[in-house]
Amino acid sequence: MMFEDLRDLYQDVILDRGRTPRHGRRLDVFDADAKGDNPMCGDRVQVFVRHDGASVAAVGFEARGCAISIASADMMADAVIGHTDAEITAMAAGFAGMARSGESHVPALQALRPLAGVHEYPSRIKCATLPWVALAAALAGTDAHKGVASSE
């Protein structure tokens, strides 16, 4: 079949999550959020985070972008729930490394391995890392009012 050789990039889980993300919505209640923008290609994502004590209890996102960026945002949400901000910041760095090199030895990132295929497509690496950049910004910006849930 045509594109069989693209399966390393578009694995089933990516096609599935890109099409029907589980976390693709704005949270009703959140205490941190941030936007990510890739001006080169017009991808946009806004990430919403709700903490429960020290760890993240829920993540949601609204995104306009390609299958890779949406799948990445959705899989990121799964991966970070239950982790503290410090852990998530380390995961974000680990994920960026995996997207660039294709390698990862971080156990917490195992479920995200299907996204490592982007490392062979330099123009697509940013698609995968954009949600993580937004999440890191959300967590960094939230320090001042952590615990004060804002809602809309």
Binding site: F3, D5, L6, Y10, C41, G65, C66, A67, I68, R124
Partner: peptide
């Protein structure tokens, strides 16, 4: 998405 289209066409 247009990027996915372009990546597939590029293949």
């Amino acid at each position: 998405h247009a990027h996915d289209v372009a990546t597939l066409l590029d293949r």
